[in-house]
Design a protein around this nucleic acid. Structure first.
Lengths: 189, 189
DNA sequence: TTCTGACATGTCACATTTGACATGTCAGAA
DNA sequence: TTCTGACATGTCAAATGTGACATGTCAGAA
């Protein structure tokens, strides 16, 4: 279970409320790495506080509580990150599952789905390129997650696009949607 | 919950026993898309059989039962795959989580971990290139998952390697060994 | 002033997953 | 023959996660 370490990691960068953490999961972290809803986050913060890994450092308006990681929490996070796990962690990713299950469809259906995947990947990559251009910043600290996520996500989308293109090629198909804007430099992979 | 569809997808390609499905999850599917252990798979096969989406078509030695997808199951799978979900599915990937949490470490530690990630990614890519060279095959049918997984995984590893290289570059040219300024890790940000 | 939407935290029943435990078969090697 | 390891399936308690429901604050717009 990685949720406590995800929370520790976010709080190690900057103290935050449960609400702010929930937004971080929705935006950067949860999109590529580890999703969690507020109904898991709030109870887990309580458990981390009981274990002395985080503490409430401030209370604000609307009952908000700001949590910060303690020294013990920082030690726990650091040792978790520096210990390389022997086995690869379990993966759950519905999008990727859908991609793999294509081999169970007949080629016509597979082509339809692959075309959609390629288009989505291109759109996702374009979006992240825009975000990257608008938000430069340092790799560590409060911008770190966003930067790492954007750069990782961009390469991820590009890889998916290349993969989908390869798969379509294997199926002996053209990708009509995908070729219409091929001349636009902003859309060139 | 995607497990039933994952099973349907595997069985749509080729009838298999619970044991064989478990191995498929351990090998191709579970490495990149969706992990499940035998303790989820066997009960889920029972539920799918109750719903008439799969059926037992043969019984073999050691009590093994071969399941095959029914017409109803094939319909269910096809409509699931052809319906594009409005929201991106929830992602759980401990490896990626570890990458993102790097921004909570001081640069020296981050560099150590990133170097390991880059090395792992390179090794993974090399391994898959070897596998690909040794096992050519068609995209659909019983080899489909393996082919899709290998090609996807290869691009994934390459993307991770590029990303880790980019991140190391962002952290500066300094190597961990070169580092002489002993800043307190807890107060780096 | 009233309303809307973001802020902010929580509980609880239900579903799902995990890890430990359990059982037994069969082929091939020592 | 005995032993080992892969084959093959299962249960069950405990841990976790999900979605629905619940409550209330505060700022700014209409």
């Amino acid at each position: 279970m990685s949720l406590p370490h995800a929370l520790l990691g976010l709080l190690a960068v900057e103290p935050a409320s449960g609400y702010a953490l929930t937004k971080a999961f929705d935006e950067s972290l949860g999109r590529y790495a580890w999703y969690a809803g507020h109904t898991s986050i709030y109870p887990e913060l309580g458990r981390l506080a009981e274990r002395g890994l985080v503490e409430v450092t401030a209370e604000g308006p609307r009952g908000s509580r700001t949590y910060a990681v303690t020294d013990a929490g920082r030690d726990e996070l650091r040792s978790w990150l520096l210990t390389r796990p022997s086995e690869a962690g379990k993966v759950r990713n519905e999008s990727v599952l859908r991609m793999f299950l294509l081999s169970a469809l007949d080629p016509a259906d597979a082509r339809t789905v692959l075309t959609g995947i390629a288009a989505d990947a291109r759109a996702g990559a374009d979006e992240l390129r825009t975000i990257r251009a608008d938000h430069p910043g340092p790799l560590t600290g409060r911008n770190g997650f966003g930067q790492l996520a954007a750069e990782f996500g961009l390469r991820q989308y590009e890889a998916v696009h290349e993969w989908a293109t390869w798969a379509l090629d294997q199926l002996g198909a053209q990708t009509p949607d995908d070729r219409t804007d091929a001349a636009d430099p902003a859309h060139t992979f």
